Computed example of a mutant assay.
Amino acid sequence: MKPSRFLAYATLIIVVAGGAIWYIINDYYDTKAARQSQKADIVMYKNEGCQCCDKWAYYMQGKGYSVKTVTSRVLSQVKAEQEIPQNMGACHTALIGDYVVEGHVPVEDVKRLLREQPDAKGIVVPGMPASSPGMNTALNEPFKVYLLKNDGSTELFAQH
């Protein structure tokens, strides 16, 4: 092969490889910027050090949701802003779309809430039921999920 032809081929390979590398790097940073600008699916407010809240967040992440955790020193203020009745409170308060999700709510109930889009504030699992997602300290201990209506009243949404 003549040296001039070899140089032409080598130059062509370098240009094509350089273009491919530039495209890959450029696409990586564009995709990274887009991911960082997206909002989390769920914003969860919790007390510092609450491990069951973290377990619920990991559970929801395992089901395909992105969760942003916000540690709050005044969680009662978050609950008051979301108009969660005191008898319906739990250890964390999450915001998902236009709804509030209070406590250890199973993913199937969150999906149902988002699918049906009831005219309500959200859904709640009061307290910390032992067999609820994130708690998982007892098997088959029944618990209830309530629909929190706009007027502050509740009705049964699901039973587990």
Rank of each mutant, 00 (worst) to 15 (best):
A138L: 05
N136V: 15
G89E: 15
K144Q: 04
V101I: 07
Q36P: 03
G97Y: 04
R115H: 15
A40N: 13
E102N: 05
H104S: 08
V145E: 04
V101N: 06
N47L: 12
A94E: 08
M1D: 12
V125H: 13
C91Y: 07
P129Q: 08
K32P: 06
Q82S: 15
V101C: 07
I24K: 14
K121I: 05
R73E: 05
M128T: 14
L75Y: 00
C91T: 13
M135Q: 04
G97S: 04
G127V: 04
N87K: 08
Y29F: 04
V67F: 06
P126M: 04
L147F: 14
I25Y: 13
I21C: 03
P142F: 03
Y146N: 03
L95T: 15
N150I: 01
N26Q: 15
W22Y: 04
S66N: 02
L75Q: 09
V74C: 10
Q38S: 13
L156I: 02
L12N: 06
A57D: 00
K79L: 14
N140G: 11
K79I: 13
W22Q: 09
Q61E: 07
G127P: 13
G134I: 11
R112Q: 09
R35W: 15
P118E: 06
Y45R: 06
V124I: 11
I13V: 09
R35P: 11
V43C: 10
R112K: 14
L75N: 12
